[in-house]
Design a protein around this nucleic acid. Structure first.
Lengths: 206, 206
DNA sequence: TCCGACTGTTCAGCTTGACGAACGCGGCCA
DNA sequence: TGGCCGCGTTCGTCAAGCTGAACAGTCGGA
């Protein structure tokens, strides 16, 4: 691994929430070292103890925390399991930013029907696979979504109005404040039951 | 890596969305192989071409897609960059489920003030670091949050009412449907300006 | 004070992943 | 048909990760 070919057309997302890719390109090893040490002592484990639980040599762990080394996936995996933290947390650097989308603004997903409107609030930055939508729908319009990618989970919080939301075979009637989550890779539905129905939808690409 | 000590007190979250850890313990290598091949041909790249872009030997890539091998993080990282997919996608298996929380239900975060109420809708499963809250607040209550973990990003969509939300030094006044995201590791505020103000909050632990 | 158990570090060794070259295969064009 | 270029696979070689033991340093008790 001498160099990482920077020839990347950077097919960024539309809204360009933030650039999560650039800082990552520096390499994850430094971040791994820091995250590993941080998570370990957050869990109150000694280096020796963690190594024992994870089934790796403590020397290995020591080197990793010293940012000396390029661990194999299995090794890092074992550590993430022993630490009970998501694997990605050990690898992905973070990136903050402030972003504001006014009610009317934002790219809209023109629906097949005019009475269903989905506004993109935050499209997934490359390392945090989730989209945020604001849904506005009028009654009479049944929004039958075909299944998306496998592993997608959708979360819906109803803001105003009433709606029938969930898996097509067993949707739930939501009132303001109600919440439902369901696998997006199965057919699902969004049907407004009142005028002025709005909801927040989080689509999680896992 | 002979054994993975299963002695894990499983400090699960309250709501217990699903257990994402158990199925992962089988090992990520098989999933990596599948994901790698899938993402590659989804991108329309030949094995040779992807290897060239990522700067890894095509033999290595071939072995990885054959589930023969335990790649180093750098290698897998280079591939994830070349494929322009989040690193975690290559490693994490998915897990679906349906979950419903009614408006009044769900564990509540009793606030320091009685006029601010946060209901947990979906607390982060171990491999998808984000929490979903429903916020109910009354005017007069300024909710000054101290910074959380570094790398946390909060997303707020206002459902009803009006509120002042964002970084403490420069909050934004939100109307229904407005959206804002800001780094959660800086001091931030949530102040309702109207009675019956509700919002959806996504806390992303990165 | 000495002793033991603990922390995290460093050092030889074996193992293994990454590399490049050579291979067999299939499509294309002269 | 022969030649060529692309594909993905397999094979030795070398470097690097992982390991276990031996190492200095710290804390607590006898």
């Amino acid at each position: 691994m001498t160099e990482t070919d920077p020839a990347q057309p950077a097919p960024e997302s539309a809204v360009d929430a933030t650039d999560g890719t650039a800082p990552e390109t520096t390499g994850p090893l430094a971040h791994i070292a820091a995250a590993l040490r941080r998570e370990r002592q957050k869990a109150g484990l000694s280096l020796t103890e963690l190594a024992r639980r994870a089934g790796v040599a403590k020397s290995t762990l020591s080197q990793l925390e010293s940012a000396a080394g390029n661990p194999s996936v299995e090794t890092l995996w074992a550590l993430s399991v022993a630490l009970d933290v998501p694997f990605a947390l050990l690898v992905q650097p973070a990136r903050p930013q402030v972003q504001l989308v006014r009610a009317g603004e934002g790219p809209r997903f023109a629906a097949d029907r005019a009475d269903y409107l989905a506004t993109v609030l935050s499209t997934c930055p490359p390392n945090a696979r989730r989209d945020l939508y604001l849904i506005t729908a009028e009654p009479g319009s049944v929004r039958e979504s075909d299944p998306h990618m496998p592993g997608v989970v959708e979360h819906v919080v109803l803001s105003t109005g009433r709606a029938l939301v969930g898996p097509s075979d067993d949707p739930a009637e939501l009132a303001p404040g109600d919440y439902i989550a369901y696998p997006g890779d199965l057919p699902h539905v969004f049907e407004a039951l009142e005028s002025g129905t709005t909801a927040v939808l989080v689509s999680e690409h896992t």
